[in-house]
């Protein structure tokens, strides 16, 4: 068992389990084996994302299970105690299923974000996801810009594609 990594946001540590993958939109992805094979990943919010959002009040998907999706496509909407956001698909593929349990009560996202709070399964042949070390570096490299963005200076920020 590999050690978890931690990213410190100000004073608050965000846990990044080793051994799973991470997308730039702050979702984790865990390969699902045994079903139709190679490209199926379970996705959820990283602890980092959850710390920014705080308590999830409302989660809504605007596509259906089985729909083809493109990368960055808006697939849903989330409202939390501190934030609201569109939800975007981290990779192109087919949205296989949503976590139905969350639609009645999304609190599992907060209580068990890397487990029962998973969001959806996506069949994606190519992902370009990062491992935990790479995600940790991605977070550190962008933390300053992220803080600036949270302060509403959105127009000054270039998308980081590095």
């Amino acid at each position: 068992m590999q050690e978890d990594l931690w990213f410190t946001m100000g004073k608050i540590p965000a846990r990044l389990p080793a051994g799973i993958l991470y997308a730039k939109n702050h979702m984790w992805a865990r390969p699902e084996t045994g079903l139709n094979g190679n490209g199926l990943f379970r996705h959820g919010f990283t602890h980092y994302a959850i710390l920014l959002m705080k308590d999830v009040y409302f989660l809504e998907w605007n596509i259906s299970e089985g729909d083809p999706v493109s990368q960055s496509q808006e697939i849903g909407h989330i409202e939390t105690s501190k934030a609201e956001s569109g939800l975007y698909c981290p990779a192109a593929g087919t949205l296989v299923r949503f976590n139905a349990a969350l639609l009645n009560d999304p609190s599992a996202i907060n209580t068990d974000g890397y487990g029962a709070g998973w969001l959806f399964d996506l069949d994606a042949p190519e992902t370009g996801y990062m491992n935990a070390e790479q995600y940790l570096k991605f977070l550190s490299d962008n933390w300053e810009k992220t803080q600036a963005m949270l302060k509403g200076k959105m127009n000054q920020i270039e998308d980081d594609e590095s």
Partner: peptide
């Protein structure tokens, strides 16, 4: 109103710039 006005995290979560 912190409880009412929400920070829009869309950009962070992969959405486009508001412009």
């Amino acid at each position: 109103n912190i409880g009412g006005l929400k920070i829009d995290l869309s950009k962070l979560f992969g959405g486009e710039d508001p412009m």
